[in-house]
Simulated scan of single mutants.
Amino acid sequence: MDASDSMRINRALNKTSKLYRAAKARKLAELGLHPGQDVLLWLLAQQPEGMTVSELAARVGIEPPTATRSLARLESGGWFRREPVATDRRQVRIVVTAAGHKLIPSIERAWSELAEQAMGGVSAQQRDITIAVLEQANERLRGLVDESVLAEE
């Protein structure tokens, strides 16, 4: 790959990353969320019995203290409750409340709208190629970084 192509790729990926994050932040702000909180809440909502902070952190690829801080910021929305774990008094299960479950369709709609806005106007074939190329790039890059870098998405 020549230097010109390398520069174009770097610029495009950097700009896409920044613009996507900013657009996502605006959409989520309408719901009272910050980027990353949507993923935590969505993952928790997929588990009717809830998850411990450690389980959630492992699922997202972050450290438990990071998950704890993120949950503390989310807690004011009343979107989940903490329940003691009977077998380990040091742990709690995070269980999504009815208010949290009610928010999930809005999160999914925000994701869908953002995807449409980002990819709208391209053919299904172009979209499939774009997704495949980005997934391949993610796989190659995953080997170069600590998995916790992926925590927010």
Rank of each mutant, 00 (worst) to 15 (best):
D5Y: 08
D5V: 14
S6F: 12
M7F: 09
I9W: 09
I9M: 14
I9D: 07
N10W: 07
N10D: 10
A12M: 14
L13I: 14
N14A: 15
L19H: 09
L19R: 14
A25N: 11
R26W: 00
L28C: 03
A29G: 06
G32T: 02
H34D: 07
G36F: 02
G36M: 04
D38Y: 02
W42C: 01
E49R: 14
G50M: 08
M51A: 10
T52G: 06
V53H: 05
S54Q: 12
E55I: 06
A58Q: 15
A58D: 15
V60I: 15
E63V: 09
E63K: 15
E63M: 13
E63F: 12
P64T: 06
A67Q: 10
A67G: 12
A67V: 11
R69P: 00
G78S: 05
W79A: 01
R81L: 09
R82L: 08
R82D: 01
R82Q: 07
V85G: 02
T87S: 15
D88M: 04
R89N: 07
R90G: 05
Q91W: 01
I94H: 02
V95S: 03
T97G: 05
A99D: 13
H101F: 06
H101C: 11
K102Q: 15
L103S: 03
I104T: 05
I104H: 05
P105E: 04
R109T: 11
A110F: 06
W111P: 01
S112V: 03
S112R: 09
L114D: 01
A115V: 06
Q117H: 07
G120Q: 03
V122R: 09
S123G: 09
R127I: 07
D128V: 03
T130L: 14
L134F: 14
Q136A: 15
Q136V: 10
N138V: 00
E139M: 10
R142C: 05
G143H: 13
V145I: 14
E147A: 12
S148W: 07
V149K: 10
